[in-house]
Structure formats: structure tokens, C-alpha cells
Amino acid sequence: MKFNPKNKTSNVVLLISAFVVVSLILWNTLSFFTKFKEEERQKMEIWATAHSELLQASLDDDPGELPLKVFQNNTSTPMILVNKDGSIKTNNMPKEVVEDTAYIKEKILKFSSENTPINIDQQGEHLATLYYGNSEVLNKLKYYPIALLLIILLFGAVIFFFFKTNKASEQNKLWAGMAKETAHQIGTPLSSLLGWNELLKTENINPDITKEIEKDISRLEMITDRFSKIGSLPKLDEYDIVQETKEAYEYLKLRSSKLIHFSFDSKIDAQQVMLNHSLYNWTIENLVKNGIDAMKGRGSIGIQIVPDGNYVNILVSDTGHGIAKSDYKAIFNPGVTSKKRGWGLGLSLVKRIVEEYHQGKIKVLSSSKEGTIMQISLKVNT
């Protein structure tokens, strides 16, 4: 698949722009967090100073209004004050945990990891140690970058899903357009060939020649019919899956090399399934031809029909070189092929026919150096 260079450049520019915007938001958030933390540190140092002054003023029986004002304004930062005599005082913490020694010790360790404790000294004498944690606002701000990243990732996932879905829709339109155009282009010379063949029948020529031409015309009509059905929603009718598979098998067997050994085995006599006759035959043909290519024109092709509850499984096996397990799903993508001159559309068409048109399933059942087994599962009519 080729990409428009202009679109590719635009995508790169958008990606870089988005990265720059996200980086700036995260950097600004980190800067704001750091600044807010420094301001909170300064507030705690002022509180410690006020506490020291309050102790000194209490000796003179004149505490003053400023220290008390500082204490009253601090209503958000959790604190633990450990006095020199070992007594503990808490602030902005639940009252019911004040007596819980284990809880207080745990909080002191946590506060020490969040912020460096502040020593309260007076005239060279150590009076107390102040441990404080992050305020509720600071804790929320700390997790803001994570929340922002999650939002951006979610937004990116939504955009990715949108573009992926849009791309798939465009590919489906392209499939339909190409198929209809191919059917249309083949239809014009086909009508002409029919007329010329009828004219040849009136001439004095070998009848076997016109019969062979009719076979080729019939083949072209079948190809045109297939492509016209790919380009639109095909009609499904009730068919016997055993009979339809056997007919496709016999057709391919007669037209394949004698170096290919064919085998057919059905565990059921008959089973009604909703099918599109032309597209189902195309599916079996593609799988068999892929198997023949994998065997390089020499080996065994086997087709087996096995009941499986509400489904019937059609197994197509070959004795080719096998498929790597990592490629089990990739082989159904358009453009994936091991052939030098292949387009990589065969299995992609098969998957579309089975899963989208027949609401069935297709997968690589098993694969090794001894060969590969492909499995089609279709729902049976009950």
C-alpha cells in the first residue's frame, strides 16, 4: 500500500505537535506542583516560628495576636508536633486517631518521606519537631499528571479507533468499487464474444472449437458473477453443503495436475446451509489453489466435512511447506503473500466471503512442515 507523502508529513507534524502540547502541560503541572510545595513549606516554617514565639510569649503571659492568627489560618495541612518531652500534638487530623500510637508513628514516617521535618529551637534549645504531610489540594495536584495522561491515552485510543474504522470503511468501498468495475469491464467484451461465437457456429468449422469457446465464455461469466457479488451484498439460499463442496472438489480435481492426489471425505450424508453458490465455490477454489501452490504442484489435497454442533466444519488440507504460527492471522490480510507474483488477495477474499457474507468463521486449524489444514465453519439450518 502506498501513502500520500503530504498526508504522511501532516501526520508526523500532528504527532509532534501533540507530543509538544502534552510535554508543556506536564512541565507546567510539575512546575506548579513544585512551587505550591515550596509555598506550603514556607507556611509550615512560619507556623513553626509562630509556635516558638507562642512558647516564649507564654512565659511572659502575653502571647499576642499574630501567633494565634497563624494557628487559626492553618486548616488544611496535616501536622504532628513531637515535643522534647515526647508528648504529641496533632492538627488537621482525625480526632479519633490521636491516641493510636501505631497510627501516629506510621504517619510520622510517611510525613518524613513527603517533607523534611522542621526543628523548632529557641535560644539554642530544641523544643519540638514538626512533621507535616501534603495538603489535600497538593495530593490531588500530584496525581493530576497521571489523570491527564490517562485522559490523553483514552482520547488517543478513541481517535485511533475512529481512523481505523474509517480506514476499514474506505477499504470496503474500494473493494466494492473495484469488484463492480471489474465485472463491468469484463461484461462488455464478454457480450461481444458471445455474438462472435454464435457467428462462428454458422460457419463451416469444427464444432469442437465453438464448444471450447463456450467453456471459456462460461468461465468468464462465472468470474463476472463472482465479482458482481463481491461488490454488493450477495443473496444466500439454502444448499446442501456436502453436495456443493463435492461439486467444487470434482471441478478442481478434473482441472488440476495428475501430480496432485485429491481425496474427499464427509462424516455426514447431507446438511442444509445458507450459501451463495458462486462465492462458496470460489472460496473452496482459492483454498485448494493456495494448497497446490504451497506444494509447488506436487502432493495431496484433502477435503473433509465434519459436523460440530450447530456448525459444520469444512477442512481443506495440503502437504505443503506450512505456515509459521505467528502468521496464522496475518495471511488473511490484503497484500500478504509468499508468492513472487502474487497479489495477496486470495485469502483476504475468502475471509470476507466466509465471515462477512456467510457469518461463518475461517482459521488455520494447524500447520507444520508436513502441511496445513484450513477450517471453514458455517452455521447449519435447523
Rank of each mutant, 00 (worst) to 15 (best):
F111R: 01
V350E: 02
K369R: 13
F155S: 15
I186R: 01
L54S: 07
T188E: 15
L174Y: 10
N310F: 03
G86V: 11
G177L: 12
F111H: 04
P307G: 13
N276M: 06
G64P: 02
A128R: 03
N166A: 12
I217A: 08
T29N: 07
D208N: 07
I104A: 04
E53D: 14
S377W: 02
S218E: 13
E214G: 11
N310M: 04
D61E: 15
Y249D: 00
Y280R: 01
T337R: 06
D62N: 14
I217R: 03
L153D: 06
P5H: 09
V380N: 00
L14E: 08
L275M: 10
A176D: 05
K2R: 09
D293T: 11
Y357F: 15
Q123P: 00
Y132Q: 01
I376D: 03
K140C: 02
Y143V: 14
Y143L: 14
T34R: 13
I373R: 06
A18V: 08
P63G: 09
R226H: 08
K351N: 03
L153T: 15
K140T: 09
N310L: 10
T75G: 07
L30C: 02
N92P: 04
V350C: 02
S169F: 14
V12L: 15
A330M: 09
A168Y: 11
G360H: 04
T245S: 05
T182A: 12
A102R: 06
F264Q: 06
Y103W: 04
V336T: 08
D208I: 11
G64W: 10
L252F: 01
G86P: 06
Y311A: 00
V12K: 15
M222E: 14
K35H: 11
I120L: 00
A18L: 12
K329D: 14
E244K: 00
L279Y: 02
A248R: 04
K253M: 03
H321E: 13
L127G: 03
N74P: 06
I209P: 02
E45F: 00
E38M: 08
L141R: 07
A50E: 05
K6S: 06
S257D: 15
V306M: 10
S52F: 05
L287Y: 06
Q122Y: 14
Q304C: 04
A50M: 01
I186H: 07
E198H: 08
I373S: 04
M1K: 09
L279V: 09
S135G: 14
V316R: 02
L30I: 09
A294G: 04
F264K: 02
T101P: 05
K95C: 00
L199I: 10
G177K: 07
G124N: 09
T49G: 14
M222D: 12
K325F: 09
T101Q: 12
P78N: 12
H51Q: 15
I376G: 03
V12G: 03
V137S: 12
Q123H: 09
S300T: 11
K235D: 09
F71L: 12
R41L: 11
F111C: 05
P78V: 08
E181G: 10
L275F: 05
V70I: 14
D216V: 14
Y103I: 02
T202G: 04
E96T: 10
A248C: 08
L54M: 14
E45C: 00
A18P: 01
S52P: 00
L138D: 06
F264H: 01
D327Y: 03
I241H: 05
P5Q: 11
Q56R: 10
L66T: 12
L148D: 01
